[in-house]
Design a protein around this nucleic acid. Structure first.
Lengths: 216, 216
DNA sequence: TAGATTGTTAATCGATTAACAATC
DNA sequence: TAGATTGTTAATCGATTAACAATC
């Protein structure tokens, strides 16, 4: 009784999509009009077969004998990723990381609009960082509702992150971008994307240790 | 003619290792002595089979009928990850992100010691952020050699990142922690771990769009 | 010893690569 | 039309899960 069941896209593919998007953006900047999966393959260091398979999950964007139109493909992937419109966002935690994110103009370019910072420290409330105002935590729920906030970036310590995620679970937000060193437990209606920097640097460390100077 | 060929560990396993480590650290903090793959499985949301398979790639850390000793496993994974010793690190780019990393005490706890910041802006040179001094770019190569720097975190714009990675490729550094929105081309002897935040938020966006409220 | 739980082999599942007919 | 390159099916490879004998 399910609706025309959309093809299940694997995590591996979603992982690659933004990278395709980035490369296509660069090609556009260089004035390149078309690219074949073969050329794209060399550029990105993955097989042409994989590129064609990946793209074909979403539609036939190419043309036999020609390849892919760069601008068109860029836009199509933009749509697939959902960045063809504005997503309002707030940052919770006006510490170093929160301020760094606030100052990061690239997000806005992609349609992620940072509307406000939130912090429990009354010293910080009212201050602006990179033109973004810091608000007190006690108005966060009403702020989210009144400003169509879809994404909450959490740059607070782990216990605070768990608590805040819990508290915001019924506000209608769609995603949490979690920078805290913990996993969050939220309803299925909220997506969580983790940026666990301490895990990232440990992986680097592991790979450094095993590096023999000639991998891949 | 190869040396006793170490078993090739897949990327997927390396991805999970730091997460095991984090959970084990928390269990230790709670005073838990032992854990079975079954309990650990429930806690982490992955299968017990996978946990046992993963760990067995590195050795038989468990004991039949008992499970795993938490403290022992924590230490063993620490060794596997290479965080049982100090790794000297510098941050290139004393912008918001660089300063945020500099202020991040958790890394030091894991053995990653931030020795200095570097920036091309003479205004910033000499300043301290979170007790870490900012140095001029022109002494970076000698600094790396004189201070046993293994890891360079790059928090500079993409063109600068590409250039600096290139320039540092013969200094003996072992890893680059790359925050710039670009891929880097370095010799195989240098590991690169990318933290592409703009790709991360696009993935979040994709998942938000596809979320039906009942995944997994 | 009996019960529990690992280590490990075998089965399954999914993702990547290869191949090629379709077609621009 | 001939050449190029996609879309797509089939083959391969690798990772996850299931099952169970080994053993504490």
């Amino acid at each position: 009784m399910e609706q025309k069941e959309e093809k299940r896209i694997s995590k591996a593919i979603i992982q690659r999509l933004p990278r395709y998007y980035r490369y296509l953006g660069e090609l556009m900047g260089q004035g390149v009009d078309r690219i074949s999966s073969g050329e794209f393959s060399k550029m990105m260091g993955i097989t042409a077969s994989q590129i064609r398979q990946d793209l074909n999950n979403f539609g036939g964007f190419g043309q036999q004998g020609y390849g892919y139109n760069v601008k068109n493909l860029y836009e199509e992937i933009g749509k697939i990723l959902g960045i063809d419109r504005i997503h309002n966002m707030i940052i919770v935690g006006a510490g170093n990381f929160g301020k760094a994110l606030a100052g990061y103009s690239d997000f806005e370019k992609r349609g992620f609009k940072i509307k406000a910072l939130f912090d429990s420290d009354s010293e910080k409330v009212g201050r602006c960082y990179s033109g973004i105002e810091t608000m007190p935590m006690d108005i966060i729920k009403s702020y989210i509702r009144d400003n169509d906030i879809e994404i909450v970036a959490l740059t607070v310590p782990k216990h605070a992150a768990i608590e805040i995620a819990e508290e915001l679970s019924d506000t209608g937000i769609k995603g949490i971008w979690n920078f805290a060193h913990t996993d969050l437990n939220v309803p299925d209606s909220i997506e969580v994307e983790n940026v666990h920097l301490s895990e990232s640097i440990m992986r680097l460390c592991y790979n450094m240790l095993r590096n023999t100077g000639s991998r891949k």
